[in-house]
């Protein structure tokens, strides 16, 4: 019986807010109430500071000469996370690697959002054969398993002996490119619904151009969905990059990334005897992705009126 009472309480409708606030502000207010999501956001900010500001406080620098005599030291007061096989400070490398991994995640997300929302909007706005073609393309890309294809393309990049500095950009683009279809579908669904609404008739009467109607009037209304999918896409991008780099097919040395630092574990001795080489970057990936996921989920709750508590 007590169970039933608890439930009827939790379904209670919220009193309507008095002032009409913008949906974004309402969402922010909702988000601030979600302690989980706020904790995720704070941890994420700290992780960014750690990666981008942290190296300035390190007594070492990425340009330091290799020091073999100082190699393979366990964590100590001088080197909090020990040193690697050529005597470089692992803590500094973890921070710099984080810059790469976070960048890959963010740029891959931007690629996904740019392609996904544009194609989704065009598809939903024009319907007809344009829609058919774009959605067929989305079906095809969604059916192709992305990890095997990324691995194959990664191997191809290695075969081409591409410059590691440029290679990162390609990796970002490829990861982003393979994940646009699901966002495109969501945006398309929203646009299909929005284009029938009255404000679009007004836009019609004003004689606005299609481009303006799509990008100024329709797409802004799908921003909540794009934000949620985009946030989660950053997490997905970071995970994907780490797997590829772990296999030596994503970001390759000398550019450090969390994934390629963990590939140190591929050698039996380092795996068994020197866990400080591969556990810290793994923990960093974990912390980052967890906080992004939790934050994304909080955002979804905040932005989606259906999931209000």
């Amino acid at each position: 019986m007590s169970e039933a009472v608890v439930h009827s309480n939790s379904v209670n409708a919220k009193p309507p807010t008095k002032k009409p606030a913008s949906p974004m502000r309402l969402a922010l207010r909702e988000m601030r109430k979600n302690k989980f999501a706020m904790a995720g956001l704070i941890v994420l900010v700290l992780m960014f500071l750690f990666c981008f500001i942290g190296p300035m406080f390190s007594p070492y620098s990425m340009d330091d000469a290799m020091n073999i005599r100082n190699a393979n030291k366990a964590p100590s007061a001088d080197h909090w996370m020990g040193t690697d096989k050529v005597g470089r400070d692992v803590l500094l490398r973890v921070m710099v690697a984080g810059q790469t991994s976070l960048m890959v995640g963010i740029v891959a997300m931007l690629v996904t959002v740019a392609i996904g929302s544009t194609l989704g909007a065009i598809s939903g706005y024009y319907r007809g054969w344009v829609d058919t073609i774009i959605m067929r393309l989305a079906d095809i890309i969604m059916s192709i398993p992305s990890l095997p294809v990324l691995i194959i393309l990664g191997a191809a990049l290695s075969e081409l002996k591409m410059d590691p500095a440029n290679r990162i950009y390609l990796v970002m683009f490829l990861i982003g490119f393979l994940s646009w279809p699901s966002l495109a579908r969501l945006v398309r669904g929203q646009i299909l619904m929005l284009r029938e609404q009255e404000f679009m008739q007004a836009a019609e009467v004003l004689g606005l151009r299609d481009r303006r109607k799509i990008f100024r009037h329709l797409l802004p209304n799908t921003v909540p969905i794009i934000i949620v999918v985009g946030t989660l896409a950053v997490a997905g991008g970071i995970l994907m990059e780490s797997v590829l780099s772990f296999l030596g097919l994503g970001v390759v040395p000398p550019t450090p990334s969390w994934g390629n630092m963990i590939s140190a574990a591929n050698s039996m001795i380092e795996f068994q005897k020197r866990p400080w080489l591969w556990i810290p970057p793994g923990v960093c990936i974990f912390i980052t992705v967890v906080s992004i996921n939790i934050m994304g989920d909080g955002l979804r709750d905040a932005l989606d009126p259906k999931s209000k508590r």
Binding site: S242, W278, F286, V289, N293
Partner: peptide, 14 residues
Amino acid sequence: FAVMSLPSFFLGLL
């Protein structure tokens, strides 16, 4: 969320 956020290879290695 924790288990969803672990890279498979890292969990395997651990």
